[in-house]
């Protein structure tokens, strides 16, 4: 493989990986706090992409405005989702909340089919994002550099919020012990809602970038990125934000590089992530950065 080609694959992997990482953050935040796999997270991603699509085409909003509206709308949706479907089940068995999450995901997908129709829609890519530039012999779109850049900024901002602000501290506290945190006077429900809002906003951001990178959107577009990002979160160690990002990047590299070096495997690309999941869970169930949890009797 020539160096140029390798560079090209490298940047593709970096883009895909940072998208996985961004989505994985939402999973890891919710799972870290509530021990709930938010199945509907991938569908928020899809809705974010659709919001931008309709914002720019139907309401003729300029791109930046549409993006902001979509991200805010998705964040609101995440909070709403928590309030309707998950909060009533806080004290229920965890599996009930999981089924509720499946129902929400199923609902959002079916609703998207009804509202947006099941036809895949082409996404308009702004010219300056896709005009090919050449770096070190590799032909790239500016988009492939923009995505990791935006991801880095968002992750840095998020890390600041979680580790250097009071709500972030509360989030960490909740993930350790929800009852004690409540007794210490933290309004737990608000903090959980905030976690959902942040996670959903990041999902929407990645959905928008996903739609730009792979310019076609459909109501089921979020499902597979969602599953894979969850796997990335498990890989990185669920509950850890850095872990989610690194897990996402590694998953992106595995997917792209495996196909780049062994083209005959391309049909099995979707299976890699799931095989990785099984391997990780067997070898190191806590993931790369996860904390070991003792089972309480």
């Amino acid at each position: 493989m020539s160096l140029e080609l390798f560079l090209q694959h490298f940047f593709n992997a970096l883009t895909l990986g940072s998208l996985y990482g961004l989505i994985a953050i939402g999973y890891t935040m919710v799972y870290g706090i509530l021990r709930l796999i938010n199945f509907a997270h991938g569908d928020i991603l899809m809705l974010g992409a659709y919001f931008v699509f309709y914002g720019t085409t139907l309401f003729c909003l300029p791109w930046p405005v549409a993006v902001v509206v979509a991200i805010l709308g998705s964040a609101g949706l995440g909070v709403l989702m928590d309030k309707i479907a998950y909060r009533p089940l806080r004290d229920a068995p965890r599996i009930s909340a999981l089924i509720s999450a499946i129902a929400v995901s199923f609902f959002l997908e079916s609703l998207a089919v009804v509202v947006f129709t099941g036809l895949p829609r082409p996404v308009h890519q702004p010219e300056w994002l896709v005009s090919i530039i050449t770096i070190g012999g590799a032909r790239l779109m500016p988009l492939t550099l923009l995505v990791p850049g935006v991801t880095a900024i968002l992750v840095a901002a998020l890390l600041y919020v979680v580790y250097h602000t009071k709500p972030g501290l509360a989030m960490q506290a909740i993930s350790k012990d929800i009852e004690t945190t409540r007794m210490l006077g933290v309004s737990v429900d608000k903090i959980i809602a905030l976690a959902f809002a942040i996670g959903s906003a990041l999902a929407a951001a990645s959905g928008i970038m996903w739609a730009l990178r792979y310019p076609q959107i459909n109501p089921y577009m979020g499902v597979f990125p969602g599953f894979k990002a969850f796997i990335a979160a498990v890989f990185g160690g669920i509950g850890s934000i850095q872990g989610a990002v690194i897990g996402g990047l590694m998953l992106g590299f595995i997917e792209i590089m495996a196909v780049a070096f062994f083209p005959e495997l391309s049909g099995y690309r979707d299976a890699f992530a799931f095989i990785l999941l099984v391997v990780v869970l067997l070898v190191k169930p806590t993931g790369l950065f996860g904390e070991k949890q003792k089972e309480k009797i």
Partner: peptide
């Protein structure tokens, strides 16, 4: 629990 769910879904 839910890890099993994801793993079997993956399967």
């Amino acid at each position: 629990g839910d890890y099993l769910g994801i793993a079997t879904l993956g399967f």
